[in-house]
Every structure is written in C-alpha cells, then in structure tokens.
Design a protein around this nucleic acid. Structure first.
Lengths: 129, 129
DNA sequence: ATAGATGCAAAGGTTTTGCATAACT
DNA sequence: AGTTATGCAAAACCTTTGCATCTAT
C-alpha cells in the first residue's frame, strides 16, 4: 500500500499557516476558530483530518502524542518512560534524571519548575529485532 | 476550603494494590478489568474517581498529564516545553537538548530511540510572582 | 452521626468517520 | 478523469458527574 499523494488545498494551507504564525501551541479548537475567520464554512472535521495529515507529513508535532487515554504509574518518583511505537508498550527507564536541567529551565523561563515528564519514543528490544 | 479526609475503602485499596503490582503503566480500563475480578460490581466511575484521588494523594502518577486535548506545534525540531500549572500556558524552552541521553536510553532498554518529548511543569514568570 | 464513597446511568468534551459532493493535479 | 479533500452530521471514545444509597470513621 502506497501513501496517498497530498494536495495543498486552501484549507490545509491556511491551517499550516496559522500554526506557523503562533508560538502558543494551540488546540484544534483554537485553530478552528482562527481559520474560520478566513474560511468561514470550514468544518472541525477538516481541521482534525489536516492536523493528522500534517503530523504524518512531519510538518507539525502533536503534543500529548500517542494515546488518547491516560496511563497510570504507582511509582511516583520522577523517572523516564519509554513507549514503543510498534507494540505500544510503556516501560520505565532505569536512569537517573539530570536534575540540573530543572534549574536551567527555571532560569530560562524566569519561573519555577515543579517537576518534569520525559518520554522517549522508539522501538523496544523485541520490536527492533 | 479544606481538603476532605480520605477513606480507605476496599475499592480504593484494591485499585492501589493493582497499580502497585504491575509495571505495565495500565490504562483505567485495564485497572477496571483487573479489579472487577475481585469486586465484580465495581463501576468504571469509581475507578476514575479513585485514580484522580490517588493522584492527588501523590500515590500514583498520571502519564499524559494535564490536558484532555492535544496541542499542536509547527516547530517540529525536538525541543523542550514548559507548561504553567496556574495559567495553563504552554511555551517553548530555548535550551539545547542533551542528545547523549537518547543513546543511553537505547542501551538501557536494548532498543532504538527515535525521538523524545520532555515537558516541564511549574509556574511561569507571570504566575510565580 | 455524618462526611465521604459507591453504583448506575446519563452527560460531557474531544476526536474520528461515513457519505455525498467538490476540488486539486 | 481520477484521486484526494471537504462539509455535514452522526458516532465513537474516554472521562466526568448527578443522584440516591451505602459505608468508613
């Protein structure tokens, strides 16, 4: 199966344009409102379809990537996670966190850092064989 | 307003027990199925309520923490994000990523790392005044 | 005794999809 | 022309919530 050839419709173009013109990491809904100012009859479905297409094309990143539902972990120490893109498994990574980074980030934004979450994505031992 | 006193019901106890006995970072649904084996008439609502309570108590971590909807970013280079716990704003952090870590994680799990996502949580300049 | 928790079912909010029509290339 | 995208509306999906009842403290 080959991937479809992509067309640059005015909707898709505008959606990308809106995303490129902001640093606010908007939600689909915000993009919808924004694009509607120029293409009033665009539908939310088109927004979502295009966000997915643009992500597949590597033009944009989706934060909260991957799953639509939450996962829970009874190990509440800060630690890294690894998610396999093939089998979906989520596992702990036994490495110490670089705590210095928290301070650097706090300085950088001029605020306070309470905690952080780092997730690695790739292929697990089993799936990368 | 004071926070309510928590009771350790058999439902809450069992849910925590199930979470502590696995390293699979389960979803609410999986926990539901698991707990149902011993408390057949437990409801999904109770699972969700308790997962939230246990998180507030600091007993467990919720991955994909924070928002129910996705945010999109047209800057597809890997970079850090910071989310303000007060105002909900998400911003980019202008710091270089420590790329060495990817290799360390790959070695640690015996697989491959494609990319990673790091999100810092805390209070932004405005909100931490 | 009483605040807090449960079960059930209905509602909520976000994202996806089926289908007929329209528009790129 | 033929494939890909759109608009609309309905459905799907995960999570939350209202309410009457029950229970831990």
């Amino acid at each position: 199966m080959k991937s479809p050839q992509r067309r640059m419709t005015k909707q898709r173009k505008k959606i990308l344009e809106v995303l490129k013109s902001t640093r606010s990491h908007p939600t689909a809904d915000w993009v919808y409102d924004e694009v509607k100012k120029e293409i009033p009859n665009i539908s939310l479905g088109t927004i979502y379809r295009n966000l997915n297409v643009l992500r597949e094309m590597g033009e944009i990143i989706e934060l909260n990537y991957g799953s639509s539902y939450s996962r829970y972990d009874a190990n509440s120490d800060d630690h890294y996670h690894f998610t396999c893109l093939e089998c979906g498994q989520v596992m702990d990574v036994d490495l110490d966190m670089d705590r210095e980074l928290d301070g650097e980030v706090a300085d950088c934004i001029g605020g306070e850092v309470s905690y952080r979450r780092t997730e690695f994505f790739g292929y697990c031992a089993e799936c990368s064989k």
